[in-house]
Amino acid sequence: MNDKIIVIGGSAGSFQIITKILSELPKKFPYPIFLCLHRLKHVRTGFIEALTIKSNLNVIEPEDKVHIKSGNIYLAPANYHMYLELGNIISLSTEPAVNHSRPAIDLTFSSAAFNYKTKVVGIILSGANRDGANGIADVHKEGGITIAQSLEECQVRTMPEAAINATEIDYVYTSDEIISYLLKL
C-alpha cells in the first residue's frame, strides 16, 4: 500500500484554502487524500463540483466499503462520518454528531492514525470549533506527521489553535508551505 495517507480537516474559512491546495497538486499525486470538511447541513449538492473544478485530481464522495486508491481525493459525504478501515477500505456511518459535526474530523483522523500509524500526514485548517484536536493528537501518538494552518493566515483560528494545544504539532504552516510540503512528499 501507499507510503503516505493524507487527512485534511477544515471548517469555517477553509474552503478557499482547500481549493488552492487541490489546484496545486499534480495529476499524478501518488497518495490518497481524505477531506473531512464541515458544511452546512442543507448544502448537500454543488460542494463537490466546486472542489472538482480547480483540482487536477479525482474528487469523490466515496460509497461505503470502497477500496482506497492512490491519487484519489475522498470527500466525507454530507451527513455521514467517514472512517478508514483495515484492508484499505472506507466505511461510512450515520452515528450521532461528534463535536456537533457529522462528518467529524476526529473520527476520520483517529481511524487513519489507528490503521496507518507513521504513514499519516494530518492537516488541520481554519475552523470555528474544536473538532479535529483529539484526532490529530492520535495521529501524533501513532507517529504520524501533524500540521496546523498558521494562525495568522486562518480566517477562523479556533480549530488549529485547539489542535496546537492538544498535541505536539510538527509544523505550523501557511497554505503555500502546506502545498510545498505535500509536493515534496
Binding site: 466499503k65 472512517y83 483495515l86 466505511s91 456511518s93 452515528e95 473520527l107
Partner: peptide, 9 residues
C-alpha cells in the same frame, strides 16, 4: 459488523 463504528459504540 463494520469494525470502526462497532468499536466506537
Amino acid at each position: 459488523y463494520s469494525e470502526k463504528s462497532f468499536t466506537r459504540r
